[in-house]
Write a protein that binds this DNA or RNA. Sequence first.
DNA 1: GTCTATACTTGGATAGAC
DNA 2: GTCTATCCAAGTATAGAC
Lengths: 220, 220
Amino acid sequence: MPPPARRSADATRTALVHAAQDALRDVGYSGSSAREIARRAGCNQALVFYHFGSVQDLLLAALDDVSTRRLTAYQESIATATTLHALVDAAERVLEDDLAAGNVAVLVELLTAGSSSPDLAAAVTERLAPWRDLAELAVGRVFELVPGAAVLPVDEAAHVLIATLLGLELVAGTSTGRETTAVLFGRARRVADLLEPGPAVRSDRAPRPRTGRAPAGGAS
Amino acid sequence: MPPPARRSADATRTALVHAAQDALRDVGYSGSSAREIARRAGCNQALVFYHFGSVQDLLLAALDDVSTRRLTAYQESIATATTLHALVDAAERVLEDDLAAGNVAVLVELLTAGSSSPDLAAAVTERLAPWRDLAELAVGRVFELVPGAAVLPVDEAAHVLIATLLGLELVAGTSTGRETTAVLFGRARRVADLLEPGPAVRSDRAPRPRTGRAPAGGAS
DNA sequence: GTCTATACTTGGATAGAC
DNA sequence: GTCTATCCAAGTATAGAC
């Protein structure tokens, strides 16, 4: 028998991780304090340090959690994608989810912090590696589907793809940034349909339910 | 005659502005406190509030300063460029200088910070406008020089251009990021020479490709 | 494991001396 | 204009009771 643990032992950990994700999305990196996260998780602030040692480590755990979940989902959708249209959809979904999860702020924080700390930079590169692989997978698909598109080696194209998506996320915070991005993906989708007049007539992508305000933890 | 001002009246302001730029580059937005900036400027922390009212206003002033300085430089090099090759050179030179000086980092930091602060986001958006204009100028040039390149409206292409450059700056901090960027510009230069076989371009930056062969993977 | 309480630190911002 | 001194708020982290 496991030790007593009268109440949720490790449920607290996951609650904190999820609350950290919500906090990152809602109030950004600077607003994601131990007190704020604990409030969303419905527990005490001291538990952040008991379970994770520091706020920074909790935020990294949150980032890892959401990353692994999303990576597997994307990997599947890209691996099974047989049309250009579907690949564009996947790219847009990646960007939307990133924005919704507020991952960009953490990533930027890590990237800038890494520039003055070699070991941290290594940690960031490590976390970025699976995304690079995913991007290479997607680019490889595009090169297969569109003859003559391989004007760049796959790894370099993947590099540009990641950079561009990150950049689009960055400027999405500006006034017209968000809608311009949507327009761009609309164009890409239409171009995809042109290059690929086959069976893929999945019309325009169905608008996803807006992420809007749906704090899972609920602000008391 | 201006009032006495025994010692550096407005030199303090510029010192603070420059110190703010350094701080943003070195320790990021979260680390750029009034005390940190004042320490770098070699003056007292209270002067931040005396001269700028708040830390955020000082950071915005820092962004203004770096923007105007860089904008004039870029505007000139783009306006005088008459070949595609020269445009690519200009873009790379600009990016190299910016990376070395950490100018883009200032913008990136404020952009991410703005994602969780609407008023800051609005202020940053306002300051992004001249850059958007500049990007449209450059894109318009490319569309003039390369017939059939206008697959996008100028403003949207400019949007993507800015996003991509910002994204490349972001990932330049990773292990292979920096050199990959250099490789990409090398490819762009060769493509430019292919599209523009006219006058012997100044090949001061890279050995001129003797053959007309495509960089990688022939598009037949 | 979770809580309360608290020590300690840092940062924004102001008042007033010089 | 610049400084010292200070207030106040918020955050990190730890100690110890339950």
